[in-house]
Design a protein around this nucleic acid. Structure first.
Length: 271
DNA sequence: AAATTCTCCTGAAGGC
DNA sequence: TGCCTTCAGGAGAATT
């Protein structure tokens, strides 16, 4: 599933193609994604120039001359740049048509979304209450420590809460906690600022290195079709339940938190 | 206010 | 071989 690094990779991949280009049309084949694609979206897009692309959490934003397209990939969404007519298949839900190419959105599970807003996107209900970007300076041990005060929730849920920090999904939450040596169920109010420093640094590190690898993939393939980013990353714990810890050989444990698979090393990440 | 549960959807995997 | 059941998962909404 597209995590923050993959969204960033997609952004970097399509940016050179779409920036300062005009959207000529949108073809919607399946409007029922997580939310209905607005029926009047076409009128907002046609002949509008894409001024720039940006990312907020896992949302990809197309800033137009007037208004902003807000795209989320859900669990199984992907964008391709196509330059020749290719018959759409079952899960190709919309095409964004430019002059010499089009972007095709594919999403088997339809947890993604495509919305449009005329207001400042940061004020859009979906984005307004988001926490800081994990790679920004605002996301640091002091910030987390203050937020964690008087809270009982476990640290994995805490860092996956978008009001606390955006873009930390299940994979990177598990990997970051392993790197920081913190048990996923540790109540956040019991975590010292020093340990939060380890955690914030771990989160930045895993995300950065995945983005870097995604960027490398882009250079190699020069389009957004290649599987990018985290697939190539060495994962220490995610998907390795009951396998030996790469640090201490102890068998990795698999628990369920909020119905999410959560793998950790009981020896490296004691409670 | 904070925390938990529910919900959308389909492909993959497992059971028989 | 094939049909049926189960399950994963991002994240906002609904509920406790």
């Amino acid at each position: 599933m597209p995590e923050l690094p993959e969204v960033e990779t997609v952004l970097q991949g399509i940016e050179p193609c779409v920036e300062n280009k005009f959207i000529r049309a949108i073809i919607v084949r399946q409007s029922k994604l997580r939310w209905e694609i607005p029926k009047n979206i076409q009128q907002h897009l046609v002949n509008q120039k894409v001024i720039k692309l940006s990312r907020r959490g896992k949302y990809l934003l197309f800033h137009l001359k007037v208004g902003t397209l807000i795209l989320h990939f859900g669990m199984s969404g992907s964008l391709k740049i196509l330059t020749t007519n290719k018959p759409p298949t079952t899960h190709d839900h919309f095409d964004l048509i430019f002059d010499n190419f089009y972007l095709r959105y594919t999403d088997p599970r339809r947890f993604g979304s495509l919305l449009f807003t005329e207001e400042d996107p940061e004020h859009h209900p979906l984005l307004a209450s988001m926490g800081p970007e994990p790679l920004s300076n605002a996301f640091n041990e002091r910030y987390l420590f203050k937020k964690a005060k008087n809270r009982k929730v476990g640290v994995k849920q805490f860092i996956m809460n978008h009001k606390i920090v955006v873009g930390v999904g299940n994979i990177y939450a598990a990997e970051s906690l392993f790197l920081a040596g913190i048990h996923p169920l540790t109540p956040v109010s019991e975590i010292t600022e020093a340990r939060f420093e380890k955690l914030t640094k771990a989160i930045k590190k895993v995300l950065q290195s995945a983005i870097k690898k995604g960027g490398t993939t882009l250079k190699d393939f020069r389009n957004s079709e290649g599987k990018a980013g985290y697939f190539q990353q060495k994962l220490n714990v995610y998907g390795r339940a009951n396998e030996p810890c790469l640090e201490c050989q102890q068998l990795l444990q698999d628990i369920r938190i909020q119905n999410r698979a959560t793998v950790f090393c009981p020896k490296c990440q004691p409670l």
